[in-house]
Simulated scan of single mutants.
Amino acid sequence: MEDFFDLDLMLRALELDFVQTGLLTAAILGVVAGVVGPLIVMRRMAFAVHGTAELTFTGAAAALLVGVSVEFGALAGAVIAALLLALLGGRSSEQDSVIGAVLAFGLGIGVFLLWLYPGRAGNKFGLLVGQVIAVDEANLMVFAVSGVLVIGVLALVYRPLLFAIVDPVVAASRGVPVRLLMPVFAVLVGIATALGVRTVGVLLVIALLVTPAAAACRVTSSPVVATVLSVIFAEVAVLGGIVLSLAPGAPISPFVTTIAFLIYLVCRVIERRRRVATRSGGQLKPTAAATATRQ
């Protein structure tokens, strides 16, 4: 066990500039994922995130092949995926099939592009499982600008967007531009997904965008509190996962996903105990979605 977990190696690695840049990048991602996550959970878009991630992978693989920044390729792929899902999945009955079709298409093309790439196998592997330590200052700037953009747009449209997510029919009847807000939100989710590719990779990006938010929604009925908790949980998972991965020099994704899943399990236990207590008292607390509807 001591050979696997080398504390001295971890402490020395934390002093390196590129590791500190990676941690700062991951911290930005944690904020973005934590803010967007509860809305994804309320909208029941976990499968859509996975579908978006596949086209994000396609864009990143294309960028790797032509020799441009992976972040720009991932962002382009994510925006295209968001627009495709918004345009093709208008009816709720068609959404799962549309996401499945987009997911399969993106994964197939992405694998083909990686096959064409003549460079190091490590670069290919990094797209799948994450390689945040490879982020440089230029990549960090892309993360920062993208993060500010996502959070800034969400701050402007949060209340009507929350209303549209919780009850789109009533929101539309009250003049909320649901048809405009949903594509905008899909693009924001796409950008957040693209940022997650560097950290946990395309295969496990859902761990940061969904798991912390799902855990937060288990322990609170307030959308605002759920967002705060989601940010905290995402930061603990991504930063803790990176730090722990430094000791054995292993890929980041298993550590990030394990921490996120443990947080989720703890929150489920807390929720279960609260339900037992509230049932004993004769009153159940409303869910976060129900609270948002009344607001």
Score class of each variant (00 low, 15 high):
residue 2 E to R: 13
residue 2 E to W: 02
residue 3 D to T: 10
residue 5 F to V: 10
residue 5 F to R: 05
residue 8 D to S: 14
residue 14 L to I: 03
residue 16 L to D: 13
residue 17 D to Y: 12
residue 23 L to P: 11
residue 28 I to Y: 02
residue 30 G to N: 03
residue 33 A to R: 08
residue 33 A to V: 12
residue 34 G to D: 04
residue 42 M to Q: 13
residue 43 R to E: 06
residue 47 F to D: 11
residue 51 G to P: 10
residue 53 A to P: 13
residue 54 E to C: 11
residue 56 T to K: 07
residue 59 G to E: 02
residue 60 A to H: 00
residue 63 A to S: 13
residue 66 V to L: 15
residue 67 G to S: 10
residue 68 V to C: 01
residue 72 F to Y: 14
residue 72 F to C: 08
residue 72 F to E: 12
residue 73 G to A: 01
residue 75 L to E: 03
residue 81 A to G: 09
residue 83 L to E: 03
residue 83 L to M: 05
residue 84 L to P: 03
residue 85 L to W: 01
residue 90 G to S: 05
residue 91 R to I: 01
residue 92 S to P: 06
residue 92 S to Q: 15
residue 93 S to M: 06
residue 97 S to A: 15
residue 98 V to E: 01
residue 99 I to D: 11
residue 99 I to H: 08
residue 100 G to D: 07
residue 101 A to M: 15
residue 101 A to K: 03
residue 103 L to P: 07
residue 108 G to F: 00
residue 111 V to K: 00
residue 113 L to G: 10
residue 113 L to H: 04
residue 114 L to D: 05
residue 115 W to D: 15
residue 116 L to D: 11
residue 119 G to I: 03
residue 120 R to S: 15
residue 120 R to Y: 09
residue 121 A to H: 07
residue 122 G to V: 07
residue 127 L to R: 06
residue 127 L to K: 09
residue 130 G to S: 06
residue 133 I to E: 13
residue 137 E to Y: 02
residue 137 E to N: 10
residue 138 A to E: 12
residue 140 L to H: 04
residue 150 V to N: 07
residue 150 V to A: 05
residue 151 I to E: 09
residue 154 L to E: 05
residue 154 L to M: 05
residue 155 A to F: 03
residue 156 L to C: 09
residue 161 L to S: 05
residue 163 F to N: 11
residue 168 P to E: 09
residue 174 R to P: 09
residue 176 V to K: 10
residue 181 L to D: 03
residue 183 P to Y: 00
residue 183 P to M: 02
residue 185 F to E: 01
residue 187 V to R: 02
residue 187 V to I: 14
residue 191 I to F: 00
residue 191 I to V: 15
residue 197 V to G: 10
residue 198 R to K: 14
residue 200 V to G: 05
residue 203 L to H: 02
residue 204 L to C: 11
residue 206 I to A: 09
residue 207 A to Q: 07
residue 211 T to L: 08
residue 214 A to C: 06
residue 219 V to D: 12
residue 222 S to A: 08
residue 225 V to N: 12
residue 229 L to D: 08
residue 230 S to V: 12
residue 234 A to S: 14
residue 240 G to P: 08
residue 240 G to I: 01
residue 241 G to I: 02
residue 243 V to M: 03
residue 243 V to N: 07
residue 251 P to I: 04
residue 251 P to Y: 00
residue 252 I to V: 15
residue 255 F to E: 05
residue 255 F to G: 08
residue 257 T to D: 06
residue 262 L to G: 09
residue 265 L to A: 12
residue 265 L to C: 08
residue 267 C to W: 02
residue 270 I to H: 01
residue 274 R to T: 05
residue 277 A to H: 12
residue 278 T to Y: 03
residue 278 T to H: 12
residue 279 R to P: 04
residue 280 S to P: 00
residue 280 S to M: 10
residue 281 G to N: 07
residue 281 G to V: 06
residue 288 A to M: 14
residue 289 A to D: 14
residue 292 A to F: 02
